[in-house]
Design a protein around this nucleic acid. Structure first.
Length: 492
RNA sequence: GCCGCGUUCGUCUAGGGGUCCAGGACGCCGCCCUUUCACGGCGGUAGCACGGGUUCAAAUCCCGUACGCGGUACCA
């Protein structure tokens, strides 16, 4: 039987970075086993539905290089792939469960349930449940007469279908990552399967869909582990073979706890995939980083592209403990991938970035040189612009920190250097010559390299760091260089 | 509170009874390269949560404690 996995997000907002990792692991597992990767939209909570969320999920996956084999908009033999479009299916199965005695109708209002909880809480029960004990004193098809139930149904009264959780049983299952896991049914409540608005809850929908879509492996976040026994109960009640289960460790915030939006952002970590897209991160770097957040191939390797990750990925090498998001390591991956990319790969993207900022690109060769000069010192692609703007225009302001290097003798040295390069013909205005002239200047004045280097860098770029200065001077050209020196002399 | 899952350098991890006085990566520090900024190269720093067992031998197996995280909805 061929492997089929699914990524099943609910469209309640933008795709979270943790969700992206879950999708990635599912995808890697599918590809590794030559299986199928299904996208299923779990839109059963109408109150939390967000209009553009589904498109955001699809765009995010595409950006990351995760290809959907079946899903909404993509098609497949097991559709529809939106749960809201499968309502009647869940209805049918819920009925089946009631008929077989594994579930029942319940007519209690929200208020009545709250009341019950409050009452039990007062008498010392810290977490009251609608369970095998309490259901006996509630309004449901177990306590009401058949006639009464029929009357209420015919009358159109609102009702839910609840799972009839057995009183004392131990549910055991094997998790592909954690090994044997067991729960006692005593701690479980009679989970609502079908809500009063006619929609299924996650629990029913996910079991029915995973079965009917012939999902072989459920790979999802650890937050689902506690509800897995309910799912197992459902598979058993239906008489279905459950898929293999694998619960992934959570991604944690550096300060501890789940990487929530608020926490992450206060710690400088973008939390939605679209933030990474908008922030010009390298998708292959993010993928590589995410793959290693909770998994490792077991050797000392660190860099792998998607294709290699597909070959390497297995569930038994996923770790059990939560993994803290390490932003600096992400940036290390990002730099790495930028350095790996060829100039031709980088060019159209960098060009778009410059154009977007309103810069005109004199020639293709010019752009190529700018990229060559900068490639080894940017950590994110948009830094080509922030660090390379001076190739296109004179600095508007001088960096305050860099200015500390502008000393009393700086003007004199710069002036002396200027005189020398002024005498150069356009054809002689080359990196090697410019460097030679600088050497002559410092020799004459008996000072170190940096004494002239730093002020010159500041005059040209406005900053205390940046690309190799001499090729930069050559690219900028004699006239402009002299102009910038003059203006720095005036202003500093 | 209860239930469950987890715990190896600051962080991500390798390790599945002896070859581990624990290996790699990020970070940090130092040196080299560079008479500039970086890249790069080399080296260093730092860890088996604690307590009991089992065993000739435990980071590795068992039990307990602590701590962390998750769950405890007509949310997913």
């Amino acid at each position: 039987m061929s492997v089929r996995v699914r990524f099943a997000p609910s469209p309640t907002g933008f795709l979270h970075i943790g969700g992206l990792r879950t999708a990635l692991y599912n995808y890697l597992f599918a590809r590794h086993n030559e299986g199928t990767f299904v996208l299923r939209i779990e839109d059963t909570d109408q109150s939390r539905y967000v209009e553009d969320a589904e498109q955001d999920i699809i765009d995010s996956l595409e950006w990351a290089g995760i290809e959907i084999d079946e899903g909404p908009g993509k098609g497949g033999d097991f559709g529809p792939y939106r749960q809201s479009e499968r309502k009647d299916i869940y209805h049918k199965y819920a009925e089946q469960l009631v008929e077989s005695g594994h579930a029942y109708y319940a007519f209690d209002t929200v208020e009545e349930i709250d009341e019950m909880r409050e009452r039990l809480m007062k008498s010392g029960n810290p977490s009251p449940k609608y369970d095998s004990i309490t259901r006996q004193s509630m309004k449901n098809s177990l306590t009401l007469s058949q006639d009464e139930v029929k009357k209420r149904m015919d009358n159109g009264d609102e009702y839910v279908v609840r799972l009839k959780v057995p009183r004392k049983e131990t549910i055991r299952f094997e998790d592909e990552i954690r090994g044997n896991v067991s729960f006692d049914t005593e701690g479980l409540d009679d989970q609502v399967l079908l809500k009063s608005d006619g929609m299924p809850t996650y629990h029913l929908a996910n079991v029915v869909d995973d079965h009917t879509m012939e999902i072989t492996h459920v790979i999802r976040g650890e937050e689902w582990l506690p509800s897995t026994p309910k799912h197992m109960l459902l598979y058993n009640s239906f008489g279905w073979e459950p898929p293999k289960m694998a619960h992934l460790p959570l991604i944690m915030s550096p300060s501890g706890g789940k990487l929530s939006k608020r926490k992450a952002e206060s710690e400088g970590i973008p939390v939605n995939t679209k933030d990474y897209m908008a922030g010009n991160y390298e998708p292959d770097a993010l993928v590589n980083f995410l793959a290693y957040l909770g998994w490792s191939p077991g050797d000392d390797s660190e860099i792998h592209d998607m294709k290699e990750l597909c070959e390497l990925f297995t569930l038994d090498r996923v770790s059990k403990g939560g993994a803290v998001f390490n932003y600096k390591k992400l940036m290390w991956y990002n730099e790495n991938y930028i350095r790996q990319h060829s100039i031709d790969e980088l060019k159209p993207r960098v060009e778009a970035l410059f154009l977007g900022k309103g810069y005109e690109i004199p020639s293709d060769d010019f752009l190529t040189t700018v990229i060559e000069l900068l490639q080894e010192r940017v950590s994110k692609i948009d830094e080509f612009v922030s660090m390379g703007a001076f190739f296109f225009e004179a600095p508007k302001a001088y960096d305050e920190n860099a200015l500390k290097k502008w000393k009393d003798d700086s003007s004199r040295l710069i002036l002396s250097y200027k005189t020398r390069i002024e005498a150069l013909s356009e054809d002689d205005f080359k990196a090697a010559t410019l460097k030679k002239k600088l050497e002559e200047t410092i020799e004459e004045h008996g000072v170190g390299f940096g004494k002239l280097m730093m002020p010159l860098r500041i005059a040209i770029s406005g900053q205390g760091f940046g690309p190799d200065l001499f090729p930069a001077l050559e690219l900028i050209g004699k006239e402009e260089v002299l102009g910038r020196i003059d203006s720095a002399l005036e202003r500093l």
